[in-house]
Amino acid sequence: MSLAISPAARAAMAEWLAHLRALNGAAENTITAYAADVSGFLAFMAQHRGGTEGLAGLVTLPQSDMRAWMAHERGRGVGARSLARALSSVKGFTAWVADRENLDATAALSTRAPKFRRKLPRPLAETAAMDVLATVGNDAREEWIAARDTAVVTLLYGCGLRISEALGLTGAASPLPGVLRITGKGGKERLVPVLPAAQKAVAAYAALCPYDLTPNAPLFRGARGGALNPRLISGAMERVRARLGLPATATPHALRHSFATHLLSAGGDLRTIQELLGHASLSTTQAYTAVDTARLMEVYAKAHPRA
């Protein structure tokens, strides 16, 4: 179906993606998702409207055509959340073309996304998080690998890093300073305080690591000396949650959720937590208030059961 996309639309999409890479610093996975979303949309419209569409025709689409595309996506099993993301991609492309070509894209841009219930973060209890840090290296076949896994999960929970951010650190970060400068999604930089426990865990790993941790090379290494694959940390978490009886939601990313939730419970304000996590929007961080409220109500229900 993608062959039906007009050369003009294909060229415009390529320019838009290049623009996102260059100016917005979008991650490659994000670019790939945008490309898939917009390609699917353009291909559908070419078939739906009976031929390849020029840019003007694509940008000035009526809402009836937008709804037809959304109905098609739902019909092939795309969920509301995924469709909302695809619509956001399409609107981004449409707005960019409309601005460049001086076209009116009001109808397409005013199309409403399907409603869906946002999934709440699933943090670990504080005791469970500490148990993970204490035992995640127990199954490692070598002492330095045990220290490595412990250091990584300590950074996730102690600093609220994403797994990609922790594994993106280089040897220049060792020994860990009191504050890390982290480059997150979209190339956005933030300063993250480093707890002594994280400094100690990374120092223990660095002392045992058999490879030379040069400033420009990855800090965390795999068994053969290459950059550590995130799947190995996921595997370590799978083993530790089986041993501790934790739910399947106890993933590496759950440690980041736990960092934010426990910080909020301790009195941290949302704006500060937003900055520490590197969220672009405060609304993303506000999900943790719902988690905190849900946990409070659970405790209340246990303490005050119905007669």
Rank of each mutant, 00 (worst) to 15 (best):
V291Y: 03
V59D: 07
I145Q: 14
A227C: 10
N229Y: 10
T285K: 03
A43F: 03
Q286S: 14
W16S: 06
T111G: 05
L213Q: 09
A223N: 10
I31R: 13
A301G: 13
T285F: 01
S64G: 08
F41K: 06
T251G: 08
T284R: 04
P218M: 08
A95C: 03
A14F: 01
F44A: 07
L103D: 08
A151Q: 00
S89P: 01
L61H: 00
G235S: 12
G77I: 10
V202N: 11
A301L: 07
A203M: 01
A254M: 06
A207C: 01
T135G: 11
T289P: 08
L277G: 11
A71C: 04
N229R: 06
N29A: 15
R49G: 03
A129T: 14
S281F: 03
K119H: 10
D212R: 14
A128Y: 02
K185E: 11
A36G: 06
N138Q: 13
L246Q: 11
L255I: 09
P218H: 06
A125K: 10
A294Y: 04
T170Q: 04
A301E: 15
P177W: 06
R81F: 05
A147P: 06
R243L: 11
P7L: 10
P121F: 02
R100Y: 02
A80V: 02
V240R: 05
T52G: 15
R306K: 13
S283C: 07
A146K: 00
S6Q: 05
T284K: 05
A84M: 08
A134E: 14
A9Y: 03
A26V: 13
A140R: 02
